[in-house]
């Protein structure tokens, strides 16, 4: 297992507070994402992954994700079982949808 943590400063209004949301599942080539309220002005992503040595790719995916979604003030926690970057991107997007859906 490898543990990674990224924090990105995000402009824009803070995401509304909502109950935690969980999407995905820890299964081969898949991952689960838990979204919770975090620190203002930041998006934090903490990852536990079974695939070692992909830190650079995780960072690129996280930065790209944070630039595309309204994630200021959100904390993401990931349990990963070797998902590809495309799957990770989809799950992170799904997690935001699910979390914000509860606030609408």
């Amino acid at each position: 297992m490898e543990r990674l943590s990224y924090e990105v400063e995000v402009e824009g209004p803070a995401a509304p507070r909502a109950p935690p949301a969980l999407v995905g599942v820890v299964a081969s080539g898949n991952l689960e994402v838990l979204v919770e309220p975090g620190d203002a002005g930041r998006c934090r992503v903490e990852i536990a992954t079974s695939a070692r040595g992909f830190g650079e790719i995780w960072e690129a995916v996280v930065r790209d994700f944070a630039a595309r979604h309204p994630v200021a003030g959100l904390r993401f926690s990931v349990n990963d079982a070797g998902a590809t970057p495309a799957v990770v991107t989809l799950r992170l997007g799904q997690a935001v949808e699910e979390y914000l859906g509860a606030t609408r």
Binding site: M1, L22, V25, V26, L34, A48, S50, S77, N79, D80
Partner: peptide
């Protein structure tokens, strides 16, 4: 986050 302590000890991914 009440996760399995055994999976962590085996270096396997856990679920929240």
């Amino acid at each position: 986050r009440v996760q399995s302590p055994h999976l962590a000890a085996l270096d396997l991914p856990a679920a929240f």
